[in-house]
């Protein structure tokens, strides 16, 4: 955000009223058409001249893209155009669902600010692809998948790996994400989210974690994911595997942290050194996992 412009570059704005119409436009114009959802990323990228588009296809007029539905046993479905504030409101009205998806709820309340959350969407936050977004961490620990639809078909794409960098995804230019599912967490799981910001509004380390049956090695499940510290959202799968060992939880936390710190490639920028980020990942992960295990989170 350092370009001098007030105005946006020229483009044709289209707001299709149905999914069919939107897919038609994308098919016709290919790379020259860009999808706009909440617009938080797209408008900023356009203003910065980091993105060019002949057509901006606003998908907010497609009715079926706005939905929130929890189906027990399957998961929480959130429409692509559902705003973060709509999700927060839903979760606050459904305490049981909120507790199941606590990390998602906490990350949502930390995402941008209350005004931007009126436009920002969970799907948009994930697909923007910048390192410090808030939604990807919870998406990874809830094994989220996005439903991508094109004229030639539809598919469910796991969020883990969907983003390859800022504005770069595995999606095809003619695909529209209609919704995201956060899968049903394991029975007895608790989850939480820590955003550690240091003189920017973004986290230098964001941790999302989920813990089920911490003291029962046979049933124990631990999931850990990061943003902010790494260039892409990072799921600490090797560390998660450790928790299958029949050892005390606290000891495994220590081992897990070491594995994460040894394996992860962290960012270094003027806001935090790589050393400090790695060190903080250890502290924050330990605090979150232990508190989740003790029911103190």
């Amino acid at each position: 955000m350092s370009a001098p412009y007030f105005t946006l570059p020229e483009f044709k704005y289209v707001k299709p009223g149905s999914l069919e119409e939107a897919l038609e436009i994308l098919d016709e114009h290919g790379e020259e058409a860009k999808i706009m959802n909440g617009g938080i990323g797209v408008v900023a990228f356009l203003k910065e001249r980091l993105m060019e588009a002949e057509y901006i296809v606003d998908i907010k007029g497609i009715p079926e893209l706005k939905k929130i539905e929890y189906i027990p046993g399957k998961g929480l479905y959130v429409g692509a155009t559902t705003t973060v504030n709509e999700l927060i409101e839903f979760l606050e009205k459904s305490p049981e669902v909120r507790e199941k998806y606590r990390a998602l709820y906490e990350a949502s309340t930390h995402l941008a600010d209350a005004i931007l959350r009126n436009r920002a969407t969970i799907v948009g936050d994930i697909l923007e692809g910048l390192p410090y977004m808030d939604a990807p961490g919870p998406a990874l620990i809830f094994e989220a998948e996005m439903h991508a639809v094109s004229k030639s078909g539809e598919r469910w794409v796991p969020v883990d790996g969907i983003v390859m960098g800022p504005m770069m995804t595995q999606l095809q230019p003619n695909e529209i994400v209609t919704e995201i599912i956060f899968k049903e967490p394991p029975e007895g799981a608790r989850s939480g989210y820590v955003k550690f910001a240091s003189r920017t509004e973004y986290g230098i380390v964001n941790v999302a974690a989920l813990v089920a049956h911490p003291n029962d090695p046979g049933k124990r499940v631990v999931k850990i994911a990061y943003t902010g510290a790494t260039a892409l959202p990072y799921r600490a799968r090797e560390a998660e595997e450790l928790f299958k060992k029949p050892e005390p939880f606290g000891k495994l936390v220590e081992e897990a942290v070491k594995v994460i710190q040894d394996n992860v490639e962290v960012l270094e920028d003027p806001y935090a050194s790589a050393d400090f980020r790695k060190y903080l990942m250890g502290i924050l992960t330990t605090q979150l996992l232990v508190k989740l295990a003790r029911g103190e989170w």
Binding site: M1, S2, R199, T200, Y202, P270
Partner: peptide
């Protein structure tokens, strides 16, 4: 005391000319 600092890039240009990174 706690947050504010203009950060300069290698060519001496202000690297955080916005309120997202100049907190």
């Amino acid at each position: 005391a706690l947050y504010e600092e203009l950060i300069f890039d290698d060519s001496g240009g202000v690297a955080n000319p916005n309120f997202s990174f100049y907190y």
